[in-house]
């Protein structure tokens, strides 16, 4: 009997959650149509069980407004395409359960990146620029790689550490959350620091700390970071950005000063 009551209680809870109506005020703007100023447009949808923000946006686009622009590819927090400002904070739409949201919400595109339209931004353009600037690729010891040679063994713990930093999906949440980047557009951002820390760990990379100092040893790099650490707090992959940035700062300070 008690089990039935409990089940009924759970069913009621599910029903009450399903019966919730969510309001989304979405910032609409199309740079290709500058005559229409940025404005908020309100949409209401009924919440479903296990609904993500990504599903809610699709619901809106399919049934209410086919002109709404937003990005998605993987729907599983891997591609990093669906990052947006949810109630002022950068989040991945596909990883945000609507049950974690209040009934009244605002959605806006990620700042800092080139706006394509509505909630869609071109993070790829900025990420490519950052990647070229910081040379975020392996700089091999030899000019010519002998593909017939067996690779050097790597300590599993080290491989794990590298993998941990390699989990970055370049969604842009850390940059959008960064107060320094919001003020200074040439700031490298946590995504860049994460990549530097990753290559610095890799024994296959021939670069020294002097080389890394040339890339991030100034106020647009690690010394410009004011340690507000919103990057760490909003990272959807929970990367250890706080400790990595502090580590890079110590290393670069020692390298730069020769202490």
């Amino acid at each position: 009997m008690s089990a039935i009551i409990e089940n009924n209680g759970a069913a009621d809870a599910v029903e009450s959650r399903q019966s919730r109506w969510l309001t989304f005020d979405i910032l609409r703007y199309d740079p290709a149509d500058p005559g229409v100023a940025p404005h908020l447009r309100t949409y209401r949808i009924e919440e479903a069980d296990s609904m993500t923000l990504f599903i809610a946006l699709n619901e809106i686009r399919e049934h209410q407004d086919p002109t709404l622009k937003f990005d998605f590819v993987c729907r599983a927090g891997i591609c990093g395409s669906c990052a947006m400002l949810v109630n002022g904070r950068p989040k991945l739409a596909c990883r945000t359960l609507t049950s974690s949201l209040p009934t009244e919400n605002t959605l806006a595109p990620l700042p800092f990146f080139e706006l394509i339209g509505d909630l869609s931004v071109n993070t790829g353009k900025w990420m490519r620029g950052m990647s070229e600037r910081l040379q975020t690729w392996l700089h091999a010891w030899e000019d010519e790689v002998d593909l017939r040679k067996i690779e050097e063994r790597m300590d599993p713990d080290l491989a794990e550490q590298i993998y941990e930093l390699d989990r970055c999906i370049e969604c842009g949440c850390c940059v959008a959350a960064c107060g320094t980047a919001r003020m200074r557009e040439d700031f490298v951002g946590a995504v860049g620091f994460g990549k530097m820390a990753r290559f610095r760990l890799d024994p296959r990379d021939a670069r020294t700390d002097d080389d890394y100092y040339e890339l991030i040893g100034d106020d647009t790099g690690v010394f410009g970071c004011m340690s507000l650490l919103a990057c760490h707090d909003v990272c959807p992959k929970s990367l250890p950005l706080q400790t990595q940035i502090a580590f890079l700062r110590r290393r670069m300070a020692m390298t730069g000063t020769g202490l």
Binding site: D210, D218, F223, G256, T257
Partner: peptide, 15 residues
């Protein structure tokens, strides 16, 4: 300037 010598100023200023 940054192409001629390693600029140690940013590190010193931060410290």
């Amino acid at each position: 300037a940054d192409r001629t010598i390693k600029n140690s100023w940013p590190a010193w200023l931060d410290i």
